[in-house]
Design a protein around this nucleic acid. Structure first.
Length: 289
DNA sequence: CAGTCCTCCTGTCGGC
DNA sequence: TGCCGACAGGAGGACT
């Protein structure tokens, strides 16, 4: 499910239920997700107040009042839902039946925040907030694809002499952090760049960004901004913690549209699906060069 | 080091 | 209807 716009949508949905409130109870229904949960995970959270719920790339980061940061990643199929936000519901929601793949249950300020993840590719861990930037998950991470953070020059530096296809380079979180398969495909289509083109070919001899790399940067920024605005994309499951659907999937030009005519009216091409590094790439060979 | 490939896990969908 | 393979929003780690 979650690339940056979906995680940001989740964050906005969870923040009112979590910020300024404390963990009353934490229940682990299995000892691990993708990785084992930290020792004493529930005990270390219980009683702590959440100062803020932030996002870095595809990670959620809850900053706690004791200087600990709770780091959460949704993997491919992770989702949160909020139950029983009303104070009087306290007796009810604690007995409400949990569903299959409900792995972590946070009781926070009279509500229940439940983490569900069928494939269990998600994970949670704890880190001192002071050293978050040095944490293995964040240490080598590139800038967010947001205005002011991501520039053509940054990408030029990252892509110079790189022989990997631009599709793979954009998915590499060390170059830009937060892009996934959907938005990379969409950005490349917007910029009319073939996913097979080598990343280094978008950098000028003198190391400056080419016009095409400037266009790609703009395409990444615009597609991410529009997707956040739309509440992300909902494919097989919901995105927001309140169960509401994202809308951006209706704006896909190429993702999942194999065989459709190119959305660019002047282009006679048809959307193709190829496989790159074992993942689907959707693009129009007519206009993406 | 750079680049490529596999893997973790479960659910769903299309084809025969 | 039932079975079986392909595929799914990610990313760490093991290869060459």
């Amino acid at each position: 499910m979650p690339e940056l716009p979906e995680v940001e949508t989740v964050r906005r949905g969870l923040a009112p239920a979590m910020e300024g409130r404390a963990f009353d109870r934490v229940e682990l229904r299995r000892p691990d997700l993708r990785f084992p949960l930290p020792q004493n995970f529930a005990a270390r959270l219980t009683g702590r107040t959440i100062k803020t719920l932030d996002r870095r790339a595809k990670y959620l980061v809850a900053r706690l009042d004791d200087g600990t940061a709770l780091i959460m990643h949704l993997g491919m199929s992770g989702a949160f839902r909020i139950e029983g936000a009303k104070p009087l519901a306290a007796l009810v929601h604690d007995t409400k039946k949990l569903a299959a793949h409900d792995h972590v249950v946070f009781s926070i300020g009279g509500a229940r925040v439940v983490y569900n993840d069928p494939r269990r590719f998600g994970f949670m861990t704890l880190s001192p907030e002071a050293t978050l930037d040095h944490h293995p998950h964040f240490r080598a991470m590139g800038p967010e694809p947001l205005p002011g953070a991501l520039t053509p020059m940054h990408l030029a530096t990252a892509f110079q002499n790189r022989k990997t296809p631009i599709k793979a380079a954009l998915l590499d979180q060390r170059n830009v952090a937060g892009l996934g398969n959907i938005y990379v495909c969409e950005a490349l289509w917007r910029a009319k760049i073939s996913p097979r083109r080598l990343a280094g070919s978008l950098v000028r001899q003198d190391g400056a960004p080419s016009k095409r790399l400037e266009a790609l940067t703009e395409a990444v920024l615009s597609v991410i901004a529009e997707a956040i605005e739309a509440g992300g994309s909902s494919l097989r499951d919901y995105v927001a913690a309140d169960g509401s659907m994202g809308r951006f999937q209706h704006g896909f030009a190429v993702y999942g549209r194999t065989g459709d005519p190119c959305a660019r009216v002047t282009c006679p091409g048809v959307v193709n699906r190829i496989v790159q590094s074992n993942r689907s790439t959707f693009f129009c060979p007519g206009c993406q060069r």
